[in-house]
Design a protein around this nucleic acid. Structure first.
Length: 449
RNA sequence: GGCGGCGUGGCCGAGUGGUCCAGGCAAGGGCCUGCAAAGCCCUCUACAGCGGUUCGAUUCCGCUCGCCGCCUCCA
């Protein structure tokens, strides 16, 4: 069983599902107000890997990830572009979906939209007001963090400490404590709005995840995921609302580390150093990015540099080459020692670098001991594809007539020891993007990774 | 100021009280090859600094230096 660090306890502990065999998981999704960046790539790749791995090991995973389609940044973007929030949200959501697909991330089982949960959010806010955990102020309804015992547990800080660190200038109109956060924002003229007992407005960001996760996964769902930067205040505030409303919230939490730039500084919106994910995917395939993500431990900061991308490309090529070399071996059951070692590493707080090392070890063994190669190759393929979501390219490339003709010409040139012509054809094929290899049966071409 | 984390060989990046241990990439040399490619072999070998604990520390403790995250929108 996979053990992960639980943000709430600070301990690495096995993931025990509430319902054996099932795992109910929630991952905070995107605010569709802009182009996906490298940070989005990492969160989704890390947790997609976990989802695939758990599914592979026999769990039925119910994976929910929301889409925030109403939020200040979307409104600002719409104003900027002179269009509607619906238009902005739908365009960026489409871009998001395409981008996740390019990354090889499996779509969530449910991808609820904030705008289709507004009425339930209004109910929750009403409930919180009724219980005395929320109050009306000038521009909306606020949650009172004082009303929840143990506020700050995810950040492992108590209320007083958090308060002392809060920036006074961030104080909004009418808040009783600087840590209080908005549940319902009253609309200004021209802003999109929904009716509520407190006047027309829109929900605050922290509320949607509470309502959606509880609705789709039920109380006491197993695991709540997200980037480390969401642990406070976003996740803390989700938790606070659920607790104040008397619900059992996520049983445990896990957070992935940040993507940082070359100087080690976090990529973020405010700093403006986030690299566009679609642009990067134009230059490197999704598998390279996934390899890069898996090569780092999920909680460590990681940087995405040209050099690192090149190295990941090379490492992946080595795995692809192995799959290619072993493509014609008999298909047998995967070597259980390798699979066992692989799983041990994965189960140990998602030690993907260690798991990859196991696979490279298997590659080396397979080459040294041909009799074990079929089972080892099967293990490497299965672990990569099912365990990591990293399918290897081991299938022959289908060739069009032109290429097939060139290959035939090269074979005859080589047969007549016309090396000049053979080399010229190879150069041509390379130019066309093929990898040219001379094997015992003649020239073989394939697409490089 | 509070809380948390990090500092490993040319680069990325794990891990551990004690014998070589990661692993990948890159580089150099060699084997193989018509030449390549792929592959194989070899080489470069580290643990920020200073103390302490210990028979022994990169790993445990303390301090110092440097860096980062969160406390504000953020994955």
């Amino acid at each position: 069983m996979l053990a992960l660090l639980d943000t709430l306890t600070g301990q690495v502990a096995p993931l025990e599902p509430a319902v054996p065999g099932h795992l109910a998981v929630y991952l905070c999704g995107p605010t569709v107000a802009g182009t996906p960046h490298l940070g989005h790539a990492r969160v989704n790749l890390v947790w997609d890997t976990v989802r695939r791995y758990l599914t592979w090991t026999g769990l039925e995973v119910h994976f929910v990830s929301n889409v925030t389609d109403i939020e200040d940044k979307i409104i600002a973007r719409a104003a900027e572009e002179g269009t509607t929030v619906e238009d902005v949200a739908s365009r960026y959501e489409a871009l998001w979906r395409r981008t996740m697909e390019r990354l090889g991330v499996v779509a969530p089982d449910d991808a609820p939209h904030a705008t289709s949960y507004v009425d339930r959010m209004v109910s929750l806010v009403g409930e919180l007001v009724g219980r005395g955990a929320a109050y009306e102020a000038g521009d909306g309804v606020y949650f009172s963090v004082e009303s929840v015992p143990g506020y700050g547990a995810l950040a492992r800080q108590d209320l007083a400490t958090l308060r002392s660190g809060a920036r006074v200038e961030a104080q909004e109109a009418g808040k009783r404590s600087p840590l209080d956060f908005v549940l319902w924002k009253l609309a200004k003229p021209g802003e999109p709005s929904w009716p509520s007992p407190w006047g027309r407005g829109r929900p605050g960001w922290h509320t949607e995840c509470v309502v959606m996760s509880l609705d789709l996964l039920g109380e006491g769902f197993d695991l709540h995921l997200g980037g480390l930067d969401l642990s406070f205040p976003h996740h803390e505030n989700e938790r606070a609302q659920a607790l104040a409303a008397g619900r059992v919230f996520a049983r445990r939490w896990a957070h992935n580390g940040m993507v940082v730039d070359e100087r080690g500084e976090k990529m973020s919106r405010s700093v403006g150093n986030g690299m566009s994910l679609p642009e990067l995917l134009d230059r490197y395939e999704g598998r390279v990015l996934r390899y890069l993500v898996l090569q780092a431990h999920y909680r460590a900061p990681m940087s995405v540099t040209e050099e690192a991308l090149q190295a990941a490309t090379g490492a992946l090529r080595r795995l692809d080459n192995f799959a290619w070399e072993t493509r014609e071996l008999p298909r047998v059951a995967a070597d259980q020692v390798v699979v066992g070692d692989f799983r041990r590493r994965m189960d140990d707080d998602l030690d993907t670098p260690g798991a990859l090392a196991v696979l490279f070890g298997a590659v080396r063994s397979a080459r040294a001991e041909p009799e074990r190669a079929p089972a080892l190759a099967a293990a490497v393929r299965e672990c990569c594809e099912k365990g990591l979501g990293l399918p290897l390219r081991g299938e022959p490339t289908s060739l069009d007539q032109e290429v097939a003709a060139l290959v035939a010409q090269r074979d005859s040139a080589r047969a007549s020891r016309d090396w000049g012509r053979a080399d010229a054809i190879r150069a041509e094929l390379t130019e066309m993007g093929y990898l040219v290899e001379d094997g015992p049966t003649g020239t073989v071409v394939r697409r490089p990774s």
